[in-house]
Design a protein around this nucleic acid. Structure first.
Length: 753
DNA sequence: GTTCTAGAAC
DNA sequence: GTTCTAGAAC
């Protein structure tokens, strides 16, 4: 073949997999950043066509962009169209660039207008020269004519990003898109079915807005796995699963705002290969019976957790057997899926989030061999082997070992896998060690044992991470404000009788008062320092049957009550608050903003009428954090409340994120600031405003595993964790970067608008 | 032997 | 909340 022939055939090949991604978003929505992030790490050749830069200083034109995009495509490159593309007409000409060889995608950066505006206003040297006050007006005007893209415009895939974690998710997806890979078709991530312009996701499931190249998908969409058992060839594939996920997302919307980070907003899911049926030649009929039996057992045990049986081959016999048997047993198809795909690319390959992956390991727990074991060790990188060896040196048939995946592992970063469970099944292959010589009685026993061990391992992870997945629960309560039994006699005159300790649980409303929500009208003799106390405050103080405060837990209460007696410790006093340094700081800077309201012992006592107080506390906290930031720009601050504080009197923690302190000594210390137990002030205010109370996490989450607050890597004990966090410079999880949960030093002395 | 955790007392 | 310490884990 001559040179020309060669190059043109190569060109053909590349062109076949080219993709045009039309970014849709207002100025400040992060389009250029998106491209930069993807292009920095992608192995696929990308060209960014940016209308702001294409004119070489002058304003660029749409035509220039079209020409440039077409040229890049001809060159076999994939293209980002980096311009606002907010309405259909603007997009139409670019969509025409698509053809059977070129996938046409849209990525919608549909972030809050406020955020786009503030970014546009702040930025300097923006390529489009859109900055300063003018930006706000422009962004506002543009957003008004926003028209979200639809598949029917000619897109084969649309990704909607409505939060920074969505954006990160999309960046990850496109970053992982190798030169030969394609992404599944469909519409992803649209959470707000405000569908003036866009079909709701439920509707989408029922009736596909047929994308240009989605012929294969046709009308074979199924609501569940089990319903398509008659169609042997179609195990659930990427697209179907994704759609199931989307629907779930829609249903869970009510809870999604609170703890949703890209890694934690999903149901705990275990992906597992069929054990022993490949290299170990276990009988498929028997194996499928056992899989279904064990899944059934654990699906009921494990509440909302999900199980996914994965096989690489679409013609997999074991998958179709299991699917058929699961159907017969009526296993909830939302809890158990069979899935055709690569177990090491479940998320990046198309969006199935599995936080735990099972490995069909060998007894040495070593990489190599073939099949799933080789694939998982290779995809996870050397850190899996190290982490595995820390846990176990070998594995007996029927046993499993849970290995928390270090954050350095690509399987962790790219796929969101937090644990690998190695499991070893029985061997029926005479060429392998521990051959059972057709003894299926023993074989079945061991295989059952293996699945039990695997699922038990998964259950233990679910338990330890429960806090991240559970929908918010109000602790202290099934207690509703309207529930009469919960009312207690409001404590009056508490401040004036500070010595007279009244234990909360000793004081209950008597039966005769249960029916009426009595307002104990007469004002007690509130004295001196007790600003802000009134009966409304006391009245709603029905925190529930919480434990009494020990004598040791009273110190903050005393300070809030009589700050003048603690002059040496108190940094600021007002009618509403007192600021003190934490006596045992858990970081370089750690202060407490105490509320000076009687009856507000803890977050559980806070109600809507305290919203203004919360805002005051937050603002005071901010002010102090800013002061410390001006002295040390490396600090990063977080503001929040403990779900169940040890010390009496509502207090806001203002704490720097170095956690560099000799006082941070145990798991409880760490997790109380670095799990969902710590309720960010901004979220608390929002919940109080919306729902009248804050969601609280149970104390049991304080004993869960230790993970780095930045990179989320797991560590076996506090000393190891501390040495890790001393060096970890990974960016914070997306969740913390949103909504001002973290306060960083500003680069410039920027003026706030 | 040393390190680390976890439960009780305060 | 901390301190102390038994005993588990390494």
């Amino acid at each position: 073949m001559d040179v020309d022939g060669k190059s043109s055939s190569k060109g053909e090949e590349e062109k076949k997999n080219a993709v045009v991604v039309i970014l849709v978003g207002a100025p400040g929505s992060g389009k250029s950043t998106f491209c930069d992030h993807v292009m920095r790490v992608s192995t696929r050749p990308w060209v960014r066509v940016c209308q702001d830069t294409i004119g070489n200083g002058k304003a660029g034109t749409k035509t220039q962009c079209l020409t440039s995009a077409a040229a890049a495509l001809k060159d076999g490159k994939s293209v980002f169209i980096d311009r606002c593309n907010l309405d259909r007409e603007q997009r139409a000409d670019f969509v025409k660039l698509g053809n059977p060889q070129v996938d046409m995608h849209a990525v919608v950066l549909d972030l809050p207008a406020k955020l786009c505006i503030s970014r546009s206003v702040k930025r300097e040297g923006h390529e489009g020269n859109l900055q300063g006050g003018r930006a706000a007006a422009v962004v506002n005007r543009m957003l008004q004519k926003k028209e979200l893209p639809k598949l029917s415009e000619g897109f084969s895939r649309i990704t909607f990003c409505q939060s920074e974690s969505d954006v990160q998710g999309a960046i990850d997806t496109y970053s992982a898109l190798g030169p030969q890979n394609t992404l599944p078709s469909g519409s992803f991530g649209q959470k707000n079915p405000d569908a003036k312009v866009q079909l709701g996701i439920m509707k989408f499931l029922k009736k596909v807005d047929s994308p240009v190249n989605a012929v294969s998908k046709g009308d074979s969409l199924k609501d569940s796995v089990t319903t398509d058992k008659e169609n042997d060839s179609s195990s659930i594939g990427w697209e179907e699963v994704k759609r199931v996920e989307e629907v779930k997302g829609g249903e869970d919307l009510a809870f999604s705002s609170l703890e949703s980070t890209s890694s934690f907003d999903n149901v705990p899911t275990l992906a597992f290969p069929s054990i022993s049926t490949a290299d170990f030649q276990f009988d498929l009929e028997k194996a499928s019976d056992i899989i279904v039996e064990k899944v059934l057992e654990f699906v009921t045990k494990l509440g909302n957790a999900r199980f996914v049986l994965v096989d690489l081959s679409s013609g997999s016999k074991i998958l179709s057997l299991v699917r058929a048997k699961a159907g017969e047993k009526n296993i909830d198809s939302g809890k158990f899926l069979t899935f055709v795909g690569d177990i090491t690319r479940l998320y990046s390959g198309g969006g199935l989030r599995c936080n735990v992956v099972a490995n069909a390991a060998n007894w040495r727990l070593k990489p190599g061999g073939g099949g799933v074991n080789a694939a998982i060790f290779s995809a996870a990188g050397p850190s899996l082997e190290t982490a595995t060896m820390e846990r176990a040196g070998s594995l007996a048939p029927g046993k499993a070992v849970v290995v928390p995946l270090p954050s350095t592992s690509p399987l962790f970063c790219r796929e969101g896998v937090t644990h690998v469970i190695h499991v070893l099944g029985p061997n029926m292959n005479p060429k392998r060690p521990n051959f059972l010589n057709k003894d299926y009685k023993k074989g079945c026993e061991v295989l059952r044992e293996a699945y039990s061990a695997l699922f038990e391992g998964f259950a233990s992870i679910v338990k330890s991470q429960k806090a991240f997945y559970e929908e918010p629960t109000v602790k202290l309560g099934s207690v509703q404000l309207v529930s009469p039994v919960d009312f207690k006699i409001p404590r009056k005159n508490q401040f004036s009788n500070a010595d007279q300790k009244v234990k909360r649980e000793d004081v209950y409303e008597s039966d005769r008062n249960k029916k009426c929500k009595v307002v104990h009208g007469e004002h007690g003799s509130q004295t001196g320092a007790t600003n802000g106390i009134d009966n409304a405050q006391n009245e709603k103080n029905n925190g529930s049957m919480s434990k009494a405060w020990g004598a040791w837990a009273q110190s903050l209460y005393h300070i809030a009550t009589n700050p003048e007696k603690h002059k040496n410790d108190v940094m600021e006093i007002s009618g509403d608050i007192v600021v003190v340094n934490d006596l045992y700081p858990k970081a370089k800077r750690h202060l407490l903003v105490l509320a000076r309201y009687e009856g507000l012992d803890r977050l559980a006592d806070v109600r809507k009428e305290n919203l203004q107080l919360l805002r005051t506390m937050h603002d005071v906290g901010l002010k102090w954090a800013e002061k410390y930031l001006s002295e040390d720009k490396t600090l990063i601050f977080r503001f929040g409340y403990h779900s169940a504080p040890s010390m009496r009197q509502l207090h806001l923690h203002v704490i720097s994120q170095d956690f560099d302190s000799k006082h941070l000594k145990n798991k409880k210390h760490w997790n109380s600031f670095n799990s969902a137990f710590f309720r960010d002030s901004v979220d608390v205010m929002e919940e109080i405003d919306k729902f009248g109370r804050a969601t609280l996490k149970d104390e049991e989450i304080l004993s869960m595993e230790l993970r780095c607050h930045r990179c989320r890597s797991a560590h076996p004990n506090i000393p190891r964790l501390k040495s890790h966090i001393g060096n970890c410079r990974a960016p914070f999880p997306a969740f913390l970067l949103q909504n001002g949960r973290l306060l960083f030093a500003t680069d410039k002395d920027g003026t706030n608008q």
